[in-house]
Design a protein around this nucleic acid. Structure first.
Lengths: 224, 224
DNA sequence: TTATAATGATAGTAATACTATCATAAAAAA
DNA sequence: TTTTTTATGATAGTATTACTATCATTATAA
């Protein structure tokens, strides 16, 4: 019954592809649960090993360190969003409609078809919202970037910027708008939950309708 | 000759106000230099102690941990920006002009009058850009927020949102636009330097003119 | 059935993030 | 000035983290 999705993520991110083995899938599954529960700083390979009844040494055979694991998860998420967008926009020609669907796809990503048994997309989305920026806010960012660790995000931004340029070829900032839509989405969901005075929208439970409305408003207005 | 600016920061951020003593000022001064140099993760109180010829124990008498020190620095930065905005917008009545000056103030904050001898505003700005998000992306965010640790940022966002509402009282997202201008500024300076495919602008040296132009364009368009 | 690869078990190390205690120096009060 | 208080320095110690190394065992594939 379940989709057998398997993303080709940058091979530098892992020592051994975790998508290929039971233990690897376990690492992915429970690292998502634990990072969501403890936060990235308090998450350790030791806790993870205990949780899955394995050992630190075994986990280190898959990931060099927890930072690369985080980048892996974030990439997985963006690949998943790209996949959703691709599926939802096939046969859509109107670029305005496309952008609407794109926005819907990533704001509601975790609600749409949970596709892989060992990935809790909703919690992964929470991780991207709460910890995602830490993937590229490090002193290693240039080194990591040169290894292609952010390719998933960059190619997604590229696709969205193309749609933006289709809507309005004169618009000067298609990349900035594309990334800003993603960043705003994550930021304002986070603000609504934790720092509500920094936003106008509210998120009740996991109802992110207001975020979608806001992003559509911003996009429409900027591209008009 | 130098301005004797002294910001009243939330007292929960420190055990002893570092602005009150030679050692305290040394801690601030060199923590900025070291965080800028090593990044927040690799920055330790031990390294800082060595650098200023003091001891870990002494630094712990000022700050409970490096995370609170980071929040302190970020707050200091936002107080500094608030101060600049206040100075630059006195006697300006036109809200559109006000917003232009606000944008200019925070994009060029480090270039305008370095005001405090022991704070390198330019490097502090770099820290806010590279590490600032980590101040509130933690599992303690709600606890920290309830202690008022993010008040400086929230009150700045509030002031800017008031100007936005003056320009266009019908605009539905004054807070979101205000915070987005700040976040975009930091993000896209960072992108331009490290992940250029995620933005349209470029930053040559420390020339952030294109960022200012972009933010003005976004603000104008959204509020028209 | 034997080789090969994957995992587990255990141990060990350097660094981090602290806490505690006591001595000394500097500043303020008497 | 002398005393008291406060700030800082020096040193030591602990639990945890982020690994690395080695060897044994169990699956899997040849």
């Amino acid at each position: 019954m379940s989709l057998q999705i398997r993303f080709s993520l940058n091979e530098g991110l892992f020592l051994k592809d975790p998508q290929d083995s039971k233990l690897g899938k376990n690492i992915i599954q429970h690292s998502i649960l634990l990072i969501d529960e403890y936060g990235f700083e308090s998450f350790t390979f030791k806790k993870l090993a205990e949780k899955i009844g394995s050992t630190e040494a075994s986990i280190y055979r898959y990931f060099e360190n927890k930072h690369l694991l985080l980048i892996f998860l974030v990439n997985w998420y963006w690949e998943w969003v790209s996949y959703l967008i691709k599926v939802n926009t096939t046969n859509v020609i109107d670029p305005k409609m496309k952008l609407k669907i794109i926005i819907h796809s990533f704001v509601f990503a975790p609600k749409d078809n949970p596709g892989v048994e060992y990935v809790n997309e909703s919690k992964l989305h929470n991780i991207v919202i709460s910890e995602g920026v830490k993937a590229y806010h490090t002193k290693d960012v240039d080194k990591d970037n040169s290894k292609g660790f952010f390719k998933s995000y960059k190619s997604l931004a590229n696709e969205v910027s193309n749609v933006i340029s289709e809507i309005n070829p004169q618009f000067k900032y298609p990349y900035a708008l594309a990334t800003n839509l993603f960043e705003m989405s994550n930021n304002h969901i986070y603000f609504a939950k934790h720092l509500p005075r920094l936003t106008d929208i509210s998120v009740n439970g996991n109802n992110v309708n207001e975020v979608e409305t806001m992003l559509n408003y911003f996009a429409d207005k900027l591209l008009s």
